[in-house]
Structures are given as structure tokens and as C-alpha cells.
């Protein structure tokens, strides 16, 4: 096997530019943990210029646990979400679950997406502050999950990990690292994303800068 996998190409470098997305469809898979669907939708809408809408997958995707581990097999679930996205004609489709995710090779994953793929998967299980001895904070979990979703959407748009430590596309393997990078795209990533995904200004017209995540007051 070589490097010829078309999914490996950075789609953001295609001469035609990134493909436009009309909306982001959010499907809750087997419930959420630490926050609610409405809060999550609101948090994502606040950070993305695209319309975010809830969808219900029918039938719900088959959930397969990882052998010998109390986790869902993220790759298999992602495969099912990709099938659903194609069936619905909805790109991108984001599945969010409260179940912990893993893959055979990694002890856990916060989320999963293939470069240039149709669907992404994010878990809120490890985003809960109480897991780290802190007070439960549904709003913080929603903002963290929104950040993870934007990160995976970046991959769907063809972006690889960014070297800018304050960009949401920066690699983070812990909640602390994810909080530090925040939930905004750096200018370099933002310009290579589908139009509207990374607005330069918020609803009030204020320019958006780096935004590390902190617990709600």
C-alpha cells in the first residue's frame, strides 16, 4: 500500500477550492453525556457561519463495541455514518454520541473523520469536567464538543493538523490541550474551508480571534 489513497490528499489545495456546504447536519447517536442536544446545537451554531440542523437517523446506526473494551468501535460507526450521509445526500453529517469511542489501535479517540470524507463522529464522554475531578458544566461540554466537531469538519474539508497552537485544527490528545487550542480556525485554515464554516466575525460584527475554552462562570 502506498500513499495513493485519494482521501489522503489535502482537499483544501484543490485548484477549484473547497466544495461549498449548505448546512451541517447533527445526529445524536445513543444519547449525549454531560450536555444536551440543544446546548450543543447552540454552541456549534455560535461558532459556525453555516446552518446547523438536527437530524434523526432511521434506522439508528448499528453500534458495535470494541472487543474487550467498554467503548464503541469508532471506525465502524464512522463507516455507518458515511453511508447514511450518502443515503441522505447530506454532507457533512456529524454523529455525536455520549459513548466513549475507541479504535483497535488507539486507547481512545475524541472524534473521527477521514480527510475529504462525508461524515464525522465525536464523543462527549471524555469532555465532561467531572471525569477530571471538576464540577459538571454542560455549557463547557457543549463548547468543547463544538470545538471537536469543527476540528473533524476541518478534516472533512481536507485540512490536516495545523501547527498553530491556537487553531482548532491543532492536534490535541487531551482535554487540557483541546481547551488551550480553543474553538477557532486560524486565518490560514479558515481561508481554505468551505465558505461560511469559519466566519471572521461573530453575529455582532466583532472580529473573532483565538478563543481558549474555560469553565463557565
Amino acid at each position: 500500500m502506498g500513499t495513493g489513497d485519494p482521501a489522503a490528499r489535502d482537499a483544501s489545495t484543490d485548484p477549484g477550492g473547497p466544495r461549498p456546504w449548505s448546512s451541517i447536519a447533527l445526529a445524536v447517536v445513543d444519547g449525549l453525556a454531560g450536555t444536551g442536544p440543544d446546548q450543543l446545537l447552540a454552541a456549534l451554531s455560535a461558532r459556525s457561519g453555516l446552518a446547523c440542523r438536527p437530524v434523526t437517523l432511521a434506522p439508528p446506526p448499528l453500534l458495535e463495541p470494541l472487543a474487550g473494551r467498554p467503548q464503541l468501535d469508532a471506525d465502524k460507526l464512522l463507516g455507518r455514518l458515511e453511508e447514511a450521509a450518502r443515503a441522505l445526500g447530506q454532507v457533512p453529517l456529524v454523529g455525536v454520541t455520549g459513548r466513549d469511542l475507541g479504535v483497535p489501535l488507539f486507547t481512545f479517540v475524541f472524534g473521527r473523520a477521514r480527510l475529504g470524507g462525508a461524515a464525522a463522529l465525536v464523543s462527549t464522554a471524555r469532555l465532561r469536567p467531572e471525569l477530571y475531578g471538576q464540577v459538571a458544566d454542560p455549557s463547557l461540554v457543549a463548547r468543547r464538543a463544538a470545538g471537536e466537531i469543527l476540528h473533524e469538519l476541518g478534516h472533512l474539508a481536507g485540512r490536516i493538523h495545523c501547527e498553530d497552537p491556537r487553531c482548532v485544527m491543532h492536534f490535541a490528545a487531551s482535554v487540557e490541550a483541546a481547551d488551550l487550542r480553543g474553538d477557532r480556525f486560524c486565518p490560514s485554515c479558515a481561508t481554505a474551508l468551505p465558505p461560511g464554516l469559519a466566519p471572521a466575525r461573530d453575529a455582532a460584527g466583532e472580529r473573532l480571534g483565538p478563543s481558549p475554552l474555560r469553565p463557565s462562570a
Binding site: T3, P104, L105, I160
Partner: peptide
């Protein structure tokens, strides 16, 4: 898994 992982991190990957 590793191929996807490293590509997302910006590395050039060959697999065998």
C-alpha cells in the same frame, strides 16, 4: 488507522 492518523498530522506516509 496509522496512515490516516499520520496524514492528518501532516506526515508523508507509506505503508507495507
Amino acid at each position: 488507522s496509522l496512515g490516516d492518523w499520520f496524514r492528518q498530522d501532516g506526515y508523508a506516509v507509506d505503508t507495507a
